[in-house]
Simulated scan of single mutants.
Amino acid sequence: MSQSSNQYQMKIDQLREQLGYDFVSLAFAQSASDGFVITWQFASGNLNNRYKRIVLQSGKGIAGLVFKTGKPMLVSNVKEELSPQDLFNDYPIIISERLNSLAAIPLYQLDRVEGVLLAGFREGKTVTKNNFRQLYDSLKGQFGDFRIKESTFR
Rank of each mutant, 00 (worst) to 15 (best):
Y51H: 09
S76E: 13
R53Y: 01
G61R: 05
R50A: 10
E81Y: 03
K52N: 12
I95N: 00
L135V: 12
A119D: 13
L87E: 04
Y108N: 02
K52D: 01
D90P: 01
R53Q: 03
S44P: 09
D90V: 03
L110S: 15
S31I: 06
T126C: 09
Q134I: 14
L102Y: 09
K71A: 11
N48I: 01
S31Q: 13
N131K: 01
V113P: 03
G35M: 11
L110A: 15
Q109P: 02
G124S: 05
D86K: 08
Q109G: 07
V66W: 12
N130M: 14
N130G: 11
P92G: 01
R112V: 11
W40D: 00
V75M: 00
V113D: 06
Y51W: 10
Q30H: 13
L65H: 11
K125V: 14
G45W: 05
A63F: 10
Y51N: 06
Y91R: 00
I94E: 02
D90I: 03
T69H: 02
L87K: 05
T126A: 12
A63H: 07
D90N: 11
N46A: 15
Q57M: 06
D90G: 05
E123V: 01
E81T: 06
R122L: 05
P92I: 03
L65Y: 12
R133L: 15
N48T: 01
Q57P: 01
A63L: 05
S96P: 01
D111C: 04
A63G: 07
G124L: 06
T126F: 12
N130E: 15
N46V: 12
L82H: 04
N100M: 00
G120T: 07
I105H: 05
F88Y: 10
F28T: 06
I95K: 01
D111S: 12
S44V: 08
N48Y: 00
F88W: 08
P106W: 14
F88D: 08
S31L: 14
S33M: 02
K71N: 13
R122E: 08
G59Y: 02
K125T: 15
E81F: 06
A32M: 12
Y108H: 08
S83I: 10
P106H: 13
G64Y: 15
I38P: 04
S101Q: 06
V116M: 14
G59N: 01
V113C: 09
F67W: 04
A32I: 11
A119W: 11
V55R: 13
S58M: 06
G61V: 02
F36R: 14
Q41C: 09
S33Y: 09
S33P: 00
Q57K: 11
I62V: 07
F36M: 13
N46I: 09
G124N: 04
A104G: 09
N89F: 00
F42M: 10
A119G: 12
R112H: 10
